[in-house]
Amino acid sequence: MDRLLNIDRRYIFIAVFVGVVLPLLIGFDLPIKPTKNVRAMYDTIEGLNPDDGDTVFISFDFGPSTITEMEPMARALLRHCFRRGIRVIGVTLIAEGVGIAQNLLDDTAAEFGSQYGRDYVFLGFKAGNEVLILNMGQDLPGTFPTDIKGNALESLAVTRDIKSLRDMDYVIDIASGYPGVDEWIQFGQERYRFPFAAGCTAVMAPDFFPFLQAEQMNGLMAGLGGGAEYETLIGRPDKAVAGMRPQSVGHLVIIMFILFGNVAYFAGKKNRS
């Protein structure tokens, strides 16, 4: 039993690798049921009125290290907004997020024929972390006089009448660390009282349940699973839904190892005693 407990970790790595790769090669369907927190975000965007010029403000606060987990949920959200004709304003609080956000916005807008300036605007990145949120809440055109392309905000249809974050119909932060959801609640939602929701990595999600209960945020998408739920809700399965197969089997493999390790541990203990 001791030999089993001290198994070469490379065998564990191989098992995890096989557990992740096989489901990518073999197609099978798993039931994806949207949770209450993801459905709340979907319903909020469904409730917005494109004819009134309702605007969603999305902060893309994630970098390359978490792109696999975060990008599908951001893409699903953007698809929902552009499909409904809801205006989108994008920003990022981290320097590495600029390229990701720009590509996401442009690619998704192109799918629906949405035009830059008329249907969406990307403000880009500025240093300041949580203080940038504070500034945008006080005076958005003062904080970002121009968008990332150098256009004055008053010259663009989406941002012409926007004075601050208070004018947003829904603010969504898609974040994988600092600055992220905590900062958006402390310095944004709590100060300026806009409707707020978030997308985050799966490991971060447990931290945000107090904010959900306090209604400081009305929805939460957690990890690739959250993205898969949103893709299911908009009826457009993509990378997140496909990623649920390897993730599910990966979880199963890890659970098997945990259970096997415990069985081996207690069996060995019994033998020794």
């Binding site: 798993l30 994806i32 990890g223 089997v249 890890i254 259970l259």
Partner: peptide, 12 residues
Amino acid sequence: VIVMLGRVPIGA
């Protein structure tokens, strides 16, 4: 174990 299974579709 419950959370790991419950957060992925294979749990359901």
